[in-house]
Design a protein around this nucleic acid. Structure first.
Lengths: 188, 188, 188, 188
DNA sequence: GATGAATGAGGCTTCATTCAT
DNA sequence: AATGAATGAAGCCTCATTCAT
C-alpha cells in the first residue's frame, strides 16, 4: 500500500555493484555503489541487509547467468562433442562479451565475503554443465576422477581461455578452438 | 635509500606477511603483520616503503620460490615427459606442503595491489617452465598456440589439482596423476 | 491537527514503546517500537509528532499510573501512618509487579528527551502523595524542609526499596517494612 | 623509545569525556570528545580501545574520586555520628562543587555501557563508607537489613540532597543538615 | 489515514602512513 | 635505525523523519 520496493532500484543497485566492483574490486565502498546506482546511501541497505548480502546476491546472480548462458538453447539431440562445444562457445561468448561480469565474478570467487552456502548453491547451478561433462567423459580417460575435479578443470580452462581472448581479441576464434580441443583431449 | 641494516628483520616481515595474509587475506593490517614479525609498527615502513611494495615483494618472492621448486634438480637428460612430470610433481609438492604460501599467492594473484610490472617479472620467472613446455608441445596439437596461453593453462591445471589434493589428501597421488595425464594429453 | 482516529493504535504504540524501551533503553529505534506495536514505521509519526513527544507522553502516562496506583483506594479516615503505609505498599506493589513500567520510567527519568515541562507536570501528579506527606510530617522533625525535597526523598526511598525487592523477592515483605519504617522515622 | 603514551593526553580525554557527557549525555560522540580533548579522532582509540572502555574507565575514576572525597581525612577517633557527618559533608561538598562529575556519574550509573564488573568494582570502592555505615547502624533499628540496602539508601539520600543543594544553593547548609538528620534518624 | 521505502546525517571504529622521541 | 603514538580519511551501518502511493 506504500511505495512498493522497486525491482528497478534493486537491479540498479546490483548493476551498480557490478560495475563498481569490476572497476575497484570487492573493496568498493557501499557509498560508491549507491551513488553509481543513483540511490541514497541508506537505500542500499533497504534492499540488501549488508554489504556481504549484496555481494552474495550478486555472486549468485552472475553464476546463474553464466550457467544459463552456457546451456541456453542446447539441444540434447546432437553428439556429445557438439553439445560440449556448444556450451563452451556460449560460455566463452558470455564471459568475453560481459567483461565486467566476468571480472566481478572473478573477484567474488576469491572474496571471503562469499559464504560457503553461496558457493554450494553456485555449484548446484552448474548441474547442467556437470551432467554434460559426466556424459562426455564417460568412456574417456578421466572416467574415474571426481566429477567436481573435472568441473573445476573445465572452469579453469574456460577462465584461462577467456583471459586470452580478452587480451588478444584478434585471435578470439583461434583461442576458443584451441581451448576446446585441449578440453576435449583431456576428457574424451 | 640505503638498504636497511638487518636482513633478518626484512625476512621476518616477509614471513609474517605470508602468515598473516594467508590467515586474513590481503586486507590484513600492516600493524598485524608488524606484530607477527616481532617488529614495530613503524619499522615495517623502513623496510618497505608501502604496503603495496611489501605485497609486491612477497608476490615475487613466492613466485620465484615456486618456479625454483618446480625446476630444482631437474635433469635435462631424461625424456621430456619425464622432465615435465618431474616439474609437475615438484610444483604440486611445493604447493601442497606450503599451504600458506600457496594461499597467499592465490590472494595476491587477484589483488589489485600487484602491479603489472610485478606480474610481468613473475611471468619471466617461469621461463624455465615455459621452455620445458615449449619443448613438450613442439610436435603436439598445441604447437601453434601462444606459449603464454599454454603456460596459463598449465598454471590453471596445477592450481586446480592442488586444490583437490588439499581438499582430499587421502587421494593425493591419484589426483596428481590424473592431473598430469590430463596435461600430457592436452599438450603432447 | 485533528486527533487521529484510532485510540487503540495509539495505545498499542505506547505499550510497545514501554516494552521496547524496558528492553533496550531509551535508545530503542522508533522502527522497533512501531514493529512491536504491529504498526507501520510511518504510522507512529501520525500518532506522535516526534520520538521525543512519544517519550514524553509515555513518561507522563507512567507517572500518572504510578501516582494513581499509590493512592487508589486510600481512605482518609485512618491514621496518617496507616494512610502513608497504604500508599507505600501500593506504590511498591505497582513498581514490583510491573517491572517493565518501572524500568522504563527509570530510563526516562534520566533521559534528556524529557522536557522540563513534563517533569513539572509529573511533579504535579504527585500532589496527592505530597499532601499525605505534608500531613505526615506536620509535627515531625522535617516540618520545615521544602515539601519537594521530602517528596524527592520519598521517591528515592521507594525506588531503592523496589530495587531490593526485585533483586531479592524472597524477602519482599521484609524490605518493604524496613523501607517504610525508615521513611517513617525520617519524617514523623 | 618512541613517543611515550602521554598521561596528559589520557587525562585530557577523560576530562573531555567528562565535560562532553555532562553536557550531552552518554550518547556524546567520540568525535566530540576527541575534539574537546584537542586530540585527533583516532587518538582516542589508542588510549581507550572502545567507547565503552572509555565510559567504564571514567565511571570508575569518578566513583573512586567520590569515595575518596567522602572519606579523605576522616579520623576514626571521633564519635560515629561525627564521623558519619564528616563523610556526609564531604560527599555532598564533592558532589555539589563538581556538578559535571556528578551529572556524568548519574548518566553513567544508568548507562548500559557500564559493565557489571565495573559496577562491582565501584561497589567495592565504597567499602570504607559501608564500614562506617555498618558501625553506625549496629545498635539501631536497621541493624538487621542487608548492608547493601543501607548503602543504597545512603546514596539515594545523598543524591537527592545534592539535587536540592544545586537547585537552591542559597540554602545549601540547611538542606545538608536536613538530609543528614534524616539519615541519622533512619539508621541510628 | 496507513504504509514502508527513501533519505542522508552521523556514529564508531580501522588503518596506512608520518613523525616525535 | 627503531619505536609506537598521532593522524584523519574512509568504511559500514543505523535511524528519525519525510513522502510517494
Amino acid at each position: 500500500m506504500a511505495r512498493p520496493r522497486s525491482d528497478d532500484k534493486r537491479m540498479a543497485i546490483l548493476s551498480a555493484a557490478l560495475r563498481t566492483i569490476a572497476a575497484q574490486g570487492p573493496g568498493a565502498a557501499t557509498a560508491a555503489i549507491a551513488k553509481a546506482a543513483g540511490v541514497s546511501n541508506g537505500s542500499l541497505f533497504t534492499y540488501f541487509e549488508t554489504k556481504a548480502a549484496l555481494l552474495n546476491t550478486l555472486y549468485l546472480e552472475l553464476k546463474a547467468e553464466m550457467a544459463a548462458a552456457a546451456l541456453d538453447g542446447l539441444s540434447t539431440d546432437q553428439e556429445l562433442r557438439e553439445q560440449l562445444l556448444y556450451m563452451w562457445v556460449h560460455w566463452l561468448y558470455w564471459a568475453t562479451s560481459c567483461p565486467d561480469k566476468r571480472r566481478t565474478l572473478a573477484y567474488l570467487d576469491v572474496s571471503d565475503e562469499i559464504t560457503t552456502e553461496s558457493r554450494e548453491t553456485a555449484h548446484r547451478m552448474m548441474a547442467g554443465v556437470a551432467q554434460l561433462l559426466e556424459q562426455s567423459r564417460e568412456h574417456g580417460p578421466m572416467r574415474a576422477v571426481p566429477l567436481a575435479f573435472l568441473l573445476a578443470l573445465l572452469s579453469a580452462l574456460a577462465d584461462t581461455t577467456t583471459d586470452f581472448i580478452i587480451r588478444d581479441p584478434a585471435h578470439a576464434e583461434h583461442h576458443r578452438e584451441a581451448g576446446f580441443d585441449a578440453l576435449w583431449r583431456m576428457i574424451a
